[in-house]
């Protein structure tokens, strides 16, 4: 990643976010985990995880590979049930048995590669699972023109300007596809938006596009959970940061009270990174 590009995006995202970090909204958190743990047989995937996610903020969950990020997402999105602890949505304890339950409570998850159907047109993807109908549902006729118009305007609201919503979504770039998936979740009233590594497969520019839409969703009052292993990306948009390592919560930070270096340090396990940096510099020298 070129340093210059990175700074450019950082400056841009900073500008879009407003110079001041919005303080976490007062009141009930949209999502709350209280001492949640998950084991698969004898393997402890997560232990004593407590976090809360407020509406209108971006909560970043950071961790290296194997830190337990995927397990955490799966609990939040209703794929797995926690084996211990309490999971609260809008202050009420919940037990989801499928992602549909989570969706019904306004928790939408955008999975990295599994968000859209590449061969289908943009508007078909946009309305997938939420098709506008007249009459009996599965056989109801879709108002195609209306759907295309709504897709276009909903995407415009998020700042995505696509001329032809009839083109296959596979023809869009990876960043744009993620952006459409985010816009879709926001449009259909997601109160909590969980993003599973939305930038990990993308280049610098593309990542910038996605980060911009994360902030657009936040502006609309959505509680965004941004899962990533990239502290640079997290630092640019996050209001609160949780760091996972080996299934445990090792640190949490609030925007404005943490530097990027701290995040990187905490993520890589401080001392480890220092010795690595030393090793690398000795090779370079």
């Amino acid at each position: 990643m070129s340093e210059e590009r990175n700074e450019e995006i950082e400056a841009a995202v900073e500008a879009a976010a407003g110079t001041e970090a919005a303080p976490p909204a007062a009141g009930t958190p949209a999502l709350e985990l209280d001492d949640v743990g998950k084991r698969f047989g004898s393997v402890v995937a997560l232990r004593d995880i407590s976090l809360h996610v407020d509406p209108g903020t971006v909560t970043c969950v950071l961790g290296d590979n194997g830190a337990g990020k995927s397990t955490l997402i799966k609990i939040l999105s209703g794929v797995h049930k926690p084996t211990s602890g309490e999971f609260r949505v809008d202050g009420l304890a919940v037990e989801f048995s499928s992602p549909r339950d989570a969706l019904a409570r306004g928790i939408a998850t955008v999975f990295q590669d599994l968000a859209t159907v590449p061969l289908m047109s943009i508007w078909r993807n946009f309305f997938l699972g939420n098709e506008p109908v007249s009459g009996f549902r599965p056989l109801g006729l879709m108002a195609v023109k209306e759907a295309q118009r709504m897709t276009k305007s909903a995407l415009l609201e998020m700042g995505i300007d696509l001329r032809d919503t009839n083109q296959a979504i596979g023809t869009l770039s990876g960043g744009e596809r993620q952006a459409v998936a985010i816009a879709r979740a926001v449009h259909f009233g997601a109160k909590v938006l969980i993003l599973d590594e939305p930038t990990s497969a993308l280049g610098v520019r593309q990542s910038g596009i996605v980060l911009k839409y994360i902030l657009a969703a936040r502006e609309q009052g959505v509680a965004v959970v941004f899962i990533t292993h990239n502290p640079h990306h997290a630092f640019m948009v996050g209001d609160r940061f949780y760091l996972l390592n080996r299934g445990r919560m090792i640190a949490s930070f609030v925007r404005g009270k943490v530097e990027l270096e701290d995040l990187i340090q905490a993520m890589a396990g401080g001392a480890e990174l220092e010795s690595l940096a030393h090793e690398i510099s000795s090779i370079r020298a």
Partner: peptide, 24 residues
């Protein structure tokens, strides 16, 4: 091409996992 069920047909064949994630 015009019904919701048709949309589900395209989605089921195009990417069954993405379709399930979208609630199809």
């Amino acid at each position: 091409t015009r019904t919701v069920f048709g949309n589900w047909i395209f989605a089921s064949g195009g990417d069954a996992n993405a379709a399930r994630n979208a609630g199809v």
